[in-house]
Simulated assay, not measured.
Amino acid sequence: MNIRDRLANLVDGVVAIIATISILSLPVPHGNDYQSLFEFGVNFWLFIVNFLIILSFWNNQRFLLDHMKTVHTRFVWINIYWLMFLSGLPIITKWMMTGSHSLIAILAFGLDNIFTKLVFTFAVVEGIRANYQGDSTEHLLLKRYFYRVLIDVLYSVVTVLVAFVNPTIAISMFILLPLFGSVRGLWRTPGKRMRQTTHPDHRKSI
């Protein structure tokens, strides 16, 4: 088994544990009134957001590994740090659920989300450079990915700033982004785009 397969197995195992912890962190309602039902509904939505964020990261990392031929030690360590930040999301989400959606918990969730995205960005850059270095495809892939990451990070930063004004709106913004991303993923075909981008005939025309 080569290092790429071992890394993929490690990520699969850790992500599976993180996803399991996220559902186990969902608090059970303590009452039978509408207030308890409302609180459980909000917490359930937070669980969905957390679950979609975790699995969307896994899907992007799987897609990245599928198109990598070379995996070196630096890329492995970047993925280890990425998994470290990703592992914090279920705990912080539980803090948001049990802390009455406090401002500090929302800020912690937003910052951890930002750090996770930034570290994963380093992983993508390292993966592209290791496999397309000196190729015109490298610049095209980096450009496309940076635009998407820049929008995601800026959105998260704005959401963190909004939390200082209205934590409820910030929670709603955190909910909307992964929901939109998951719905968009149902119709996207990134593999087709990657094959078109990396095809020799297409690279000659870049």
Rank of each mutant, 00 (worst) to 15 (best):
H101D: 08
I78A: 12
T98R: 13
D135R: 10
S102A: 12
A105P: 03
P178T: 09
H139C: 00
V76H: 06
T70D: 12
F85A: 07
M173A: 05
Q61P: 01
P90F: 11
A163H: 07
P167R: 00
G134L: 01
N113Y: 11
T121P: 02
T73D: 09
D112E: 14
S100K: 14
F120P: 04
V162G: 04
D152W: 10
N131R: 13
I106R: 01
V160K: 00
L150C: 13
Y145G: 02
Y132R: 14
S100A: 12
E126T: 03
W77H: 11
Y132P: 05
L89V: 14
I171N: 00
S136E: 14
T98Q: 14
M173R: 01
L55P: 01
T121H: 15
V76Y: 09
Q133N: 15
A130N: 09
V125G: 01
T159D: 05
W82C: 09
V162M: 08
L142Y: 13
L186Q: 04
E138H: 12
K69Y: 05
W77D: 05
L83A: 08
Q61G: 02
D135T: 06
T168R: 03
L141P: 03
L103E: 13
L55W: 10
A105G: 12
R148T: 10
G110C: 15
V76C: 12
L176I: 12
L89R: 03
W187K: 08
A108E: 05
R129S: 07
F75L: 07
I114S: 09
G185S: 08
R144P: 02
N113T: 13
R148G: 07
F115V: 12
T73W: 12
I92P: 04
R129P: 06
M96N: 11
L65D: 06
I151N: 04
N59T: 11
F180G: 08
L150R: 03
I114P: 05
F164L: 09
P167K: 00
I92A: 10
Q61L: 04
V119I: 15
I151M: 12
L86C: 10
F146Y: 14
G127D: 01
T70R: 15
A130H: 08
D135I: 00
S182Q: 05
L154W: 03
W187E: 04
L179A: 07
